[in-house]
Simulated assay, not measured.
Amino acid sequence: MTIQRLEVSNPEFTPNNTQMVTVHSSHLKRRHDINFYNVNASGQNLPVIILLHGVYGNSWVWMNLGGIDKAYEKVKAELNIPEFILAMPSDGGRLDGSAYLPSLNAGNYEKWIVEDVIDACKQTLDSVTHNSHFYISGLSMGGYGALRLGAKYPNLFNGISAHSAITKLADMAHFVETPLSEYQCEHSSEADVMYWLKKNHHQLPKIRFDCGQDDVLYESNLQFEKQLKDAQIPYLFEQFSGGHEWAYWHLHVQKTVKFFADIEQSL
């Protein structure tokens, strides 16, 4: 068991339909947080969307900067979709962003997500079980995390969606002053999204990603699309007006919810 201790919020004192959890992780050797939304949803084996934030962020930004709760409820009101639990973890709190990588010296931020966060969902929410389906999405650095982790662990996730994604580690330099050598992993291919996509191409979940045409990462997303096409990996790529900003993500995360709902309804 990698979770050494869980501290769970009391619903009597917590905003409606939310839950906050602090996890003491042996992978990180410290405490980090997860915020949940839609915890009052009824049912068993409910699917979970893990939402990864970008640089500078934390577990609260998807709701309190991005209004993910309002975006989710809008989709639910418009379409007859299944109930989802939204899980919004911290990235682990390293530097300006951990990139959700298994760092060589500083902690395993990858296993924090694919083990601790998933285990915390199952341990603290009665509606989430070993039979629940998990989906992964993210924005910017979180988009990179969603693409890489979804590709590396295709057995864990039923769908991948990324918004304004960093598609290669070098693009972290747009947002952080930290030398990229600080993100060194044990293997040189570890941080390469395309390496994992090609390695597991026969068992990948469905993939979608989008980017704004005014985004600093737009050209990298176009290059990533070409790599996917050349590798004959199925995907959906959409481009819209907009930049690297919360207004864009609030709007287009609704497409992620619809995308995952379509997959869930087909299973």
Rank of each mutant, 00 (worst) to 15 (best):
A87C: 14
L217F: 06
R208K: 13
I118R: 00
T18F: 06
Y153F: 15
I160N: 06
L101C: 04
N45G: 02
N131R: 15
P205I: 09
Q44Y: 09
L139Y: 08
M172N: 08
S188D: 14
V23N: 02
V257W: 04
W62V: 03
Q213W: 08
S181I: 10
F84D: 00
H32G: 08
E110G: 03
N35T: 15
L139Q: 05
D262Y: 10
W62F: 07
I50T: 14
W196T: 05
R31M: 12
Y100E: 01
W60M: 15
G142C: 06
I118D: 03
Y135G: 04
D210F: 03
A231P: 02
E264Y: 04
L104G: 00
F240Q: 07
L197K: 00
L125V: 05
S103M: 14
E110F: 09
A120Q: 02
P102A: 11
V114Y: 12
P11K: 13
D262L: 11
V21P: 00
V61K: 02
A120I: 10
N108G: 06
Y37F: 14
L236R: 12
D210E: 15
A41S: 15
L222H: 08
E110A: 06
Q232T: 12
L79W: 11
N35F: 12
N17E: 09
F157D: 02
A170R: 13
K168P: 02
D262H: 09
G243Y: 01
Q203F: 11
N58F: 05
Y153S: 08
K199W: 03
V193F: 05
A146H: 08
T22I: 13
S98W: 01
L204E: 10
A173K: 14
P82M: 10
I50V: 15
H133V: 01
V48L: 09
P11V: 05
D126M: 15
K206W: 07
E225T: 13
G243F: 07
L180P: 04
M88S: 05
D33W: 02
V114T: 14
H174E: 15
W62I: 04
G212V: 08
L65I: 12
V193E: 06
G107F: 02
M141C: 06
Q223T: 11
T178A: 14
Q227V: 02
T2M: 11
F84R: 07
V55H: 07
K168E: 10
Y153R: 06
G212I: 09
E245G: 08
I85H: 08
Q254R: 13
N16S: 12
S9G: 08
G97Y: 00
Q227F: 07
L125K: 00
I49Y: 09
T2W: 10
W249A: 05
M194E: 12
D192W: 06
T14H: 01
Q184E: 14
Y135V: 01
T14F: 00
L267H: 13
A87E: 08
N40W: 05
D96M: 12
V114L: 09
D69K: 09
T256R: 01
L236N: 10
S189D: 10
G143M: 06
E225R: 15
Y235S: 04
R148C: 04
Q123V: 09
R208E: 13
E73K: 10
V128L: 03
S9F: 03
V21M: 07
S220I: 02
V39K: 06
A87R: 04
G138E: 07
G145A: 06
K74F: 09
L86G: 09
L28A: 01
A87P: 09
D192G: 03
D126Q: 15
D69I: 07
D33M: 07
